[in-house]
């Protein structure tokens, strides 16, 4: 589907600019692959929303692999991303126990094995769901504080100012307490685990 665009980017340069978090690369990917994936999901009983969700997940997978320098393709990027999308959608369908669709879309041109990438992704997604759950449970200000540091990459100085701490050390102590609570919730720990001891 690269023909949709005015110019063609090689897979290699696309992947490397995506790895840097270049939004132009994301835009190129959208223009080049989204129509194909939308059509495919339509054919397999999906809606526009389904198609877009699947596409977002697929691009996330490609982005994370690109970032980790782990995207060594033996095929074209388009083949890879379409295979990922197809498998994600099939997984979602079978999870929702909708009708079997293997018959509906067996005329897929070529596809590559993406199972391990997808199961990694689902593992991450589950962890994120769990994490978000824990974030709700730890409440404020831990929720915002930890997200500010670990998700929005704010510095401890900024956090100290935003949260009204008198100095960075106080903010650090607070961050530690919050992370510790989060950790306990996330791994279903009791309180007073080893980290409270001073044995090491």
């Amino acid at each position: 589907m690269g023909s949709n665009s005015q110019f063609n980017m090689s897979d290699e340069s696309l992947i490397s600019s995506l790895a840097c978090g270049d939004t132009k690369a994301v835009q190129y990917i959208y223009k080049s692959f989204y129509p194909t994936i939308e059509k495919m999901v339509f054919k397999m009983n999906g809606s526009v929303d389904d198609a877009y969700d699947i596409f977002q997940d697929s691009v996330t997978i490609v982005y994370e692999k690109a970032k980790a320098d782990d995207l060594h393709l033996s095929c074209q990027l388009s083949t890879y991303i379409v295979s990922v999308a197809k498998n994600l959608w099939l997984k979602k369908l079978s999870k929702n126990k909708r009708q079997s669709v293997s018959v509906l879309y067996d005329d897929m041109e070529e596809s590559v094995a993406v199972d391990s990438d997808i199961s990694h992704f689902h593992e991450f997604e589950n962890n994120v769901t769990k994490l978000q759950d824990c974030f709700i449970k730890i409440g404020e200000p831990c929720n915002t504080l930890l997200k500010a540091f670990y998700v929005d990459n704010k510095s401890m100085q900024e956090i100290a100012i935003n949260f009204g701490y008198t100095n960075t050390d106080n903010a650090k102590t607070q961050k530690y307490k919050c992370l510790n609570r989060l950790r306990k919730l996330f791994f279903n720990k009791n309180e007073n685990e080893f980290l409270n001891e001073r044995t090491y």
Binding site: T23, F55, V59, L131, Q132, N153, R183, F186, L195
Partner: peptide, 30 residues
């Protein structure tokens, strides 16, 4: 095990960050 847990948490944070980035960028384009 503390190091292992920390790594798992950090990976989850990273994934959260990655998907936020892709989702918001794509939402905008879409």
């Amino acid at each position: 095990s503390a190091v292992h847990e920390h790594k798992t948490l950090m990976l989850s944070f990273e994934h959260m960050q990655d998907r936020d980035f892709i989702h918001s960028t794509l939402d905008h384009i879409h």
